[in-house]
């Protein structure tokens, strides 16, 4: 799978990288959550952090925000230690389970955030406006819908006017309309050139909003490229057939096959040219019951993030 790793070519600039992870490892006791991630994100990039649950996305985000310290390696945000970047308002976040106090109103919550960052009341009102919350400003947070609460977190994150905005599973638990509204707000905001990193497991979100996709699996980066590059990874098809006595190594040697799997009498061959593979199977082997399926992003995601055991 190493061949699938695409690295965005680094550009030489004098400005510090928005994010610089260098050999970052994070262990919790015997568990290694992040296992050697090195990643550079340039200012203005919109990056999706994709991976299954437990891949290390949230731990990585926590380290970017100074909520966790790496066991090994270094994390820099705009050239600074993460907690400094947070204090200066260079980086802010909408967290997966970001807490809100139920007995504050929406407006008070944003004003408190403004006070903490030394911003004016006008800034607070502008943030409410941008998050589309002006109408529910007087409402108690506890009485807001999940989508409204998430937009409130977004308003709070916008307040320091951060250079880098981190969104950790920002639309989890939202309905389709809520997700749409949330992303519209984000899209409008990022058009102003903010750097955005969002962790998600909704592939369509990564596809629609990211200009770079980083796949994380078991604490490592397994693929890193533009959305279109990752889509290219997802092209190709799988040919399924019944073939008793097949040997995986022999199937892998077949022209055009880049991945082969044998499960009992059923074989799964993946490759760009499925016609060629099918022709070979039908003419040169005893294979029968052929079925050809296209890979989609979902499959690419599964392929990139699945355990090696199933290969």
């Amino acid at each position: 799978m190493s061949g699938m790793t695409l690295t965005a070519s680094p550009e030489l600039t004098t400005a510090p990288a928005a994010v610089e992870l260098d050999g970052v490892i994070k262990r919790f006791g015997a568990v290694t959550a992040v296992d050697g991630i090195s990643l550079t994100i340039r200012p203005g990039e919109v990056v999706a952090l994709l991976g299954p649950n437990g891949a290390g996305k949230t731990t990585t985000v926590d380290m970017l925000l100074g909520l966790q310290r790496p066991t090994e390696g270094t994390v820099r945000v705009y050239g600074r230690a993460p907690h400094e970047a947070v204090e200066l308002g260079l980086v802010s976040a909408v967290m997966q389970t970001g807490a809100l106090l139920k007995d504050y109103t929406v407006e008070e919550t944003v004003r408190l955030t403004a006070v903490l960052f030394g911003r004016s009341r006008a800034d607070a009102e502008a943030a409410l406006e941008r998050a589309g919350l002006t109408e529910v400003g007087k409402r108690l947070v506890g009485k807001c819908s999940g989508g409204q609460q998430q937009r409130l977190r977004f308003a709070m994150a916008l307040l320091p006017d951060p250079e880098l905005l981190i969104l950790d599973e920002p639309t989890t638990g939202m309905d389709v309309a809520g997700r749409h509204e949330f992303w519209s707000a984000i899209r409008e905001d990022t058009s102003r050139g903010r750097t955005v990193i969002f962790a998600t497991h909704y592939l369509e979100e990564a596809d629609a909003y990211a200009d770079r996709v980083v796949f994380v699996r078991r604490g490592r980066v397994v693929a890193d490229g533009t959305a279109s590059e990752v889509k290219a990874l997802a092209s190709g098809r799988t040919v399924r057939a019944t073939l008793p006595g097949a040997v995986e190594a022999e199937l892998l040697a077949v022209a055009g096959v880049d991945k082969a799997e044998v499960r009992g009498e059923t074989i799964f061959l993946h490759g760009r040219d499925s016609d060629e593979i099918a022709r070979y199977l039908l003419t040169r082997t005893a294979a029968r019951d052929l079925e050809i399926t296209s890979r989609n992003l979902e499959d690419a995601f599964l392929a990139l993030t699945a355990d090696e055991v199933s290969k």
Partner: peptide, 16 residues
């Protein structure tokens, strides 16, 4: 109450 609600964690994302 604020720790139970996770608010303290939210405050860590501010200069407070």
């Amino acid at each position: 109450i604020e720790r139970a609600a996770g608010w303290s964690r939210q405050l860590r994302l501010t200069p407070l």
